[in-house]
Design a protein around this nucleic acid. Sequence first.
DNA 1: GCAAAAGTGTTACTCGTACACCCATGG
DNA 2: CCATGGGTGTACGAGTAACACTTTTGC
Lengths: 244, 244
Amino acid sequence: MNDDTWKVPEIAVAVDLAVLTVLADSLQIMLVERGIEPYLGTQALPGGFLSSVDESLDAAAERELTEETGLDPVGLHLEQLHTYGAPDRDPRQRVVTVCYLAFVPGLPPPVAGGDARSAAWVPTKTALHPGTELAFDHKKIIGDAVERTRSKIEYTTLAAAFCGPEFTVTDLRRVYEIVWDEKLDPRNFHRKVTGVENFLVATGTQTTRQGGRPAALYRRGPARLLHPPMLRPAAPKPDASQTS
Amino acid sequence: MNDDTWKVPEIAVAVDLAVLTVLADSLQIMLVERGIEPYLGTQALPGGFLSSVDESLDAAAERELTEETGLDPVGLHLEQLHTYGAPDRDPRQRVVTVCYLAFVPGLPPPVAGGDARSAAWVPTKTALHPGTELAFDHKKIIGDAVERTRSKIEYTTLAAAFCGPEFTVTDLRRVYEIVWDEKLDPRNFHRKVTGVENFLVATGTQTTRQGGRPAALYRRGPARLLHPPMLRPAAPKPDASQTS
DNA sequence: GCAAAAGTGTTACTCGTACACCCATGG
DNA sequence: CCATGGGTGTACGAGTAACACTTTTGC
């Protein structure tokens, strides 16, 4: 061995969270302000080190979600996104972070609560803007999270995870339009989603609206996969080779 | 991220490999026999601990691939599959393993070589059989790898990664049929894959065959995504009206 | 010629898209 | 009545599935 400055031979394992919501006509991500060095005062993804010895990665992700954002993990979608382990991603020591992706409805929680210090929703466009400074490699992680989200709602029913317990077909369509940043035909969208078995369950009630026909309210059904998938509008000229 | 106290639990980070190939009419996975406890003598995925401080996860995966299987990582597909970190998955200590998925052509390497001790191709059906004993949680990992592979070849051109440098349309079709365990119509398959831009590049040469018209040989083109996707034959609908 | 495998043509059907049109409410 | 948004009908075209048919080799 050597006498170098870093005396900790172990690699630290962290769990970070990319918590997304659809709010105010944009896809937003939960960021917290760092209270310690490095990157003190910079915005970062909520997360922390895997502490307890008997805690699974999934459990650690749920715990961090509650501790740092005050959200209740029961019932909301939480999946592994990717694991990041570049040697220089943390200046203190080698850190490998397992990042999780979560979808939460926009309306219920006004953020904050619990242990969270200055947790805030930030539009992903702002977070990904070249001028925005984020801690560690979190900007890249957010980019991956947004891309995963965009493709995930194509073939799963997870877009409904961004809606409240009861929602209209138009609410759901707005989620797609905001996440994809594409306009969708309201008529065809309606026919499509109402035609998928077990996707939407009619409550029988309707919205009371101002100026316009009331819309039927739905709850999420048990279906988890979209069959057939909801395809993004094709780019005008998809010529030549595509790279993933 | 938090922690004013800089305590790091003793967690080891490993990189495991799920290396798949199509060989002898079946989807096979590379397994090695463990030379140390625990699970001494049991078959396991190739892999090892992340040792060097300056090594990225991707680089570690490539290194393990070369060391344990003798395969050359240049040009072959290698992607992160999932990270496994159940507290009790290794009886010695807490181990979090980042698993990678690799596709290699079946023909070239007769396995073994380098540091590999008894590396062998094992049909995934055998590895996943209830009677088969594998080290750690590797059976679950293999199940995840197979499922990822099945869906991946639907919308990417990666099925060609299982073929040699030059291959026929029928070779490619056999890959799909073996991975999906489904029969595909040769005529429609041919039209479809040859119609996708930049998927297959004709070499101009043909196979010399025994009994049958020679087939044109192709190389992989630059396309990485299949547009439109190759869909698995739908499972028979649970239609109550008719039974056999 | 015959068997075997490669490759093409044709038709029917499904599904997505575009858009005309009707329905139900508030003002 | 009119504006606004919810929801249905329908025609067209792209893409798939099924299968008859032609092509090119070895024996």
